[in-house]
């Protein structure tokens, strides 16, 4: 897919809570095609400690309203600056980058999308995409430390059955996503996950044990995002490969997990 460097306009900055913002971006031109699982490299200006772009998952794309959504967690100065953007301000992005989740084979497949923390970001676009493609049996399992870490529950509910876990029992079942009862009672045919590495590794172990197709979306630190710097590599059975070009989505059978 052709990559673009674009100046997008901040249409809205919704503060979801003190840690997360949803940036709704638009453009005077039609947004390019983007696929679920892909990401953007966002330039952060006027932040003295931020030198490189920030890789941010594509949270949602609405071509009818010409909107691109980015879900941003405040981690450091760069993301804090992004979360303080005001409507009308310009954000420079390189997109779409990386590969995408694989479309399941059968419309009746029982699909499970698991997101942890800000790792839920790519799952919203993926859930909507699957629903629009005619997949009916979609479950989204979101996990977080507390209810404040569960994001966009109402948006997800438009496309999927939503179940949750929190470590402090403030929402859904208590514990980690891999401890959710649905993993014992349901027979999923494919699992897609993004979130903290320990969570994704636990999900991958579950999928391997049950022999379920499983894709993970990695969030390695990056510089260029286009396969030039070779900084974001993950170790695969083929050797070191760039997460930005060969990923961020990997089938777990390719990783040395």
């Amino acid at each position: 897919m052709k990559k673009f460097m674009l100046d997008l306009i901040v249409k809205e900055n919704k503060q979801l809570n003190n840690q997360y913002s949803l940036l709704i971006l638009t453009s005077n031109d039609d947004l390019p095609e983007m696929l679920p699982g892909q990401f953007a490299e966002v330039r952060v200006d006027d932040s003295p400690n931020t030198f490189l772009r920030r890789p941010i998952s594509i949270n949602f794309v609405d071509y009818t309203t010409n909107e691109l959504w980015l879900l941003v967690q405040i981690v450091g100065d760069g993301t804090r600056k992004m979360c303080s953007l005001k409507p009308g301000e310009i954000l420079n992005l390189i997109l779409p980058l990386g590969n995408s989740f694989s479309l399941p084979e059968n419309k009746t497949d029982q699909l499970l999308l698991i997101g942890g923390g800000v790792g839920t970001a790519p799952m919203l676009y993926w859930a909507s995409y699957l629903k629009n493609k005619g997949f009916e049996d979609i479950t989204v399992l979101l996990g977080g430390r507390s209810i404040d870490n569960l994001l966009q529950l109402e948006d997800f509910a438009q496309y999927a059955k939503v179940i949750t876990t929190t470590e402090d029992a403030t929402h859904g079942e208590k514990g980690f996503v891999t401890q959710h009862s649905a993993l014992q009672t349901e027979k999923f045919s494919a699992i897609y996950t993004c979130g903290p590495t320990p969570m994704m590794k636990a999900v991958a172990a579950y999928a391997t044990e049950k022999n379920i197709f499983c894709e993970v979306s990695l969030e390695n630190t990056m510089a260029c995002g286009i396969g030039a710097c070779l900084c974001c590599v993950t170790d695969t059975k083929k050797g070191h490969v760039c997460v930005c070009t060969e990923g961020p989505v990997f089938n777990i059978t390719k990783l040395k997990w």
Partner: peptide
């Protein structure tokens, strides 16, 4: 091995 990059001032 990863990590191979660190952002600095």
């Amino acid at each position: 091995p990863y990590p191979r990059m660190a952002e600095t001032p």
